[in-house]
Nucleic acid binder design. Structure first.
Length: 685
RNA sequence: GGGCCUGUAGCUCAGCGGUUAGAGCAGGGGACUCAUAAUCCCUUGGUCGGGGGUUCGAAUCCCUCCGGGCCUACCA
């Protein structure tokens, strides 16, 4: 049975940066699904908005010397421009910083309070006294309490992989101002998700609301299972949903001076944006969010599974809104097999892409790669060029391009000619294609469609319209052959319409009837004029892809040096805030000799070093250089030791300092040495 | 350490208990000339990661090992 309404959302992009090709996977995937539903005659709307709150936005605005509102407004314009250029067609694109969202947040808040889900607890958090803001973990950097690695984030150490709280961090500093942080205690409100445990277990594990692997993940990771000794029922953690000032967001009415955490108001933004759309279209929000006849589909990336599969359904349930019919979760984009990288030029912004390439290429390529699973998706640049050219230009558009001009004078025949069952096969396969779209199995849909094109081209080859044209007596045959070829082409264009809306428009113009419905693929088009053929899609040139990648590479700066050093290290770890001479002098660096070096068998990264500062002065230091250094080769070497570092208890013993080294870690650690003549114990000035 | 996913032709993948394992692209040979050097025909190529098991029968189910990815690591 057809649902009477389908409401589709894509995750709200954060208004802190431009749209890039990784984002586009999701918005294109969702757009295709929505266009497919609409083509099938469903009542379907595509709702999205900018996610505008939080510390990061506040900081970005400050950096540019504008208000948060100005900042997010500029981003709002930019995002919409990029999406439109990629033919991503939202029915409404709102903002979480809206009146509607504030009101709905209050409504949800009242509901969770009334349901007894809210509790208050004191939270210790690091605070930046200069920027006057509490600091999320990623805004704090300091020394890892476990391995002493410098410049680690507040919650985990990238060097030794240990985790901790920002409070444990040694010498924590704010990333914002560089100031040493203060520890402050502030009341926060929490939502006790555990009280919804039974509901969430039911919702996540039944009725295909989630992909099976996602349901497994949630069961294994958060929910556990009653009666399963391997994976006993786990308690869901309380969710901290408020933030003390300063914070850019909505102030909480019954908790003055506090703000809802951005993740509280962001998903509510789905509802708020729908509400705005309703106002503009004379619709009732009740019909779209509180009517079981409306099916809600969320499309998200796997990174935000938790919020959408546990937290959000819990909120909706509590506040009496529709639960999602399905949360479709996709993987991440890699380029040529690796993470997108600014230095490699594979971190391509939507606007950069548009400077060089046709969005249709990307819509099609992603379609050939997207399935219903949450697997990562690789953009292989060679394959990209290849596939677009051979499939779209060589096979599909070529069908029209090689026959349309023979039919321009006559138009299409009045009766559909014998075609050996080709069109009928296309009708039959159409159901399979539709099923594949419905299940988000776009790569299967594309394969089926290309298979149709692979059947159509041999037909043209066999009928050889270019020969028929030479004989005036064969004029009718010629018209019939072109009628078949162009109808097969049009059938394909209908099936591709969700992916390639422009091609569908062009096909409509060529054959004098717009493509508006999936069912148009079931009936041949007859007797209409054929317009003069115009190119529908340019071939994709490898050099354009290369130009795009080059433009995406971050520029090297400064005077040209004879040493062609990459800018990557600075990109990955930017310079810190300026500090004073006194600050520098606080660190007592000493020359030390490694007198003993041994492997720590249980540690993944650590070596235990005994250092001599001359005489009897010895220090034990655990250094995260196991992968990079051979203990035997270290013995006797002079190194530089941060000698007045507070001792730190680690799993394997007490570390009494740290040795200086450069490099990203792992195998690439380069220990600082000292020129010949230095003596252990000498200070480094 | 745990969890999830994954390993099929040079590449990207389909097949997920049943005839000699498939497609597209790439490679090789030929044809055609309408078309954006597109198209068409033929063709090379795989002991389906290794090993064990269940079965009349396994790429397909189970176990185990190896490799890859992602997520976590007593705050998601």
């Amino acid at each position: 049975m057809k649902p009477s309404r389908i409401l589709v959302t894509a995750a709200l992009p954060y208004a802190n940066g431009p749209i890039h090709i990784g984002h586009l996977v999701e918005y294109i995937q969702t757009d295709i699904w929505v266009r497919f539903q609409k083509l099938r005659g469903q009542r379907c709307i595509y709702i999205c908005a900018d996610d505008t709150h939080g510390t990061a936005i506040m900081i970005s605005a400050k950096k540019r010397g504008v208000t948060e509102e100005e900042f997010i407004e500029a981003m709002h314009v930019e995002h919409q421009r990029d999406f439109a250029a990629f033919e991503i067609e939202f029915d409404h694109y709102g903002s979480t910083n809206s009146l509607e969202n504030r009101e709905l947040c209050e409504e949800f808040w009242t509901a969770v309070n009334d349901a007894g889900l809210v509790t208050e607890k004191a939270v210790e958090q690091l605070y930046d006294p200069i920027a006057r803001t509490p600091l999320a973990d990623r805004f704090v950097r300091g020394k890892c309490p476990v391995c002493q690695a410098e410049e680690q984030y507040g919650d985990h150490c990238e060097s030794c992989l240990s985790t901790y709280t920002p409070v444990e961090l040694i010498d924590p500093r704010s990333v914002l101002s560089g100031a040493p942080t203060e520890l402050r205690t502030h009341p926060h409100k929490f939502i006790q998700l555990e009280k919804l445990h039974d509901f969430l277990e039911g919702w996540t594990q039944n009725e295909d609301h989630l992909q099976p692997e996602v349901a497994n993940y949630l069961r294994g990771h958060f929910l556990g299972e009653a009666g399963n000794p391997e994976n006993p029922r786990k308690e869901l953690m309380d969710w901290d949903v408020t933030r003390p000032p300063e914070y850019f967001g909505f102030e909480i009415p019954d908790f003055p001076g506090n703000y809802w955490y951005v993740w509280f108001d962001a998903p509510i933004g789905y509802v708020a944006a729908t509400k705005q759309w309703c106002h503009q279209h004379g619709e009732k929000l009740e019909n779209w969010w509180r009517d079981p006849a409306t099916k809600i589909h969320h499309f998200i990336g796997k990174d935000i599974t938790y919020f959408h599969a546990l937290f959000w359904p819990g909120m909706l349930k509590t506040a009496g809104f529709n639960l999602p019919e399905k949360v479709h979760i996709h993987g991440f984009l890699t380029v040529d097999g690796t993470k997108m990288s600014k230095s490699k030029g594979t971190f391509v912004k939507a606007s950069t892409y548009l400077n060089h390439l046709d969005p249709a290429y990307m819509r099609y390529y992603y379609s050939t790669k997207l399935g219903a699973r949450l697997d990562d998706l690789d953009l292989n640049l060679d394959e990209f060029v290849n596939k677009v050219n051979s499939d779209l230009v060589g096979k599909v558009v070529n069908l029209a391009s090689r026959t349309a001009r023979f039919a321009t004078d006559t138009g299409l025949s009045g009766m559909y000619p014998e075609d050996g069952g080709l069109f009928a096969t296309g009708v039959e396969i159409g159901d399979e294609i539709a099923a594949a779209y419905e299940m988000c199995d776009y790569n299967r849909a594309m394969r089926l469609i290309m298979d149709l094109a692979d059947r159509a081209n041999p037909y043209v080859e066999a009928q050889a319209p270019w020969n028929l044209r030479k004989d005036p007596a064969q004029a009718d045959r010629l018209q019939d052959v072109c009628t078949v070829a162009l109808n097969l082409f049009r059938q394909i264009a209908v099936y591709l319409a969700p992916v390639l809306p422009r091609l569908a428009r062009q096909t409509g113009e060529l054959l004098s009837e717009p493509i508006q419905s999936w069912d148009q693929a079931k009936q041949p088009l007859l007797g209409t004029p054929v317009q003069p053929f115009q190119h529908m899609l340019q071939r994709l040139e490898k050099k354009d892809v290369e130009a795009m990648i080059n433009e995406s590479k971050e520029m090297e700066e400064g005077p040209t040096s004879t040493f062609q050093d990459s800018n990557a290290p600075l990109q990955e770890e930017p310079l810190c805030e300026e500090i004073s001479f006194d600050d520098v002098m606080k660190v007592d660096l000493r020359v030390a000799r490694v007198v003993q070096a041994e492997d720590v068998p249980d540690a993944r990264k650590l070596l235990k070093l005994t250092l001599s500062l001359g005489g009897d002065e010895r220090r034990t230091v655990f250094a995260g250089i196991k992968a990079a250094a051979d203990p035997e080769q270290l013995v006797g070497r002079l190194v530089v030791l941060a000698a007045n570092l507070a001792p730190r208890k680690m799993k394997f013993g007490i570390s009494e300092g740290m040795i200086l080294a450069a490099g990203p870690g792992g195998k690439d650690v380069f220990i600082l040495g000292v020129d010949d003549g230095a003596q252990p114990g000498q200070r480094v000035h």
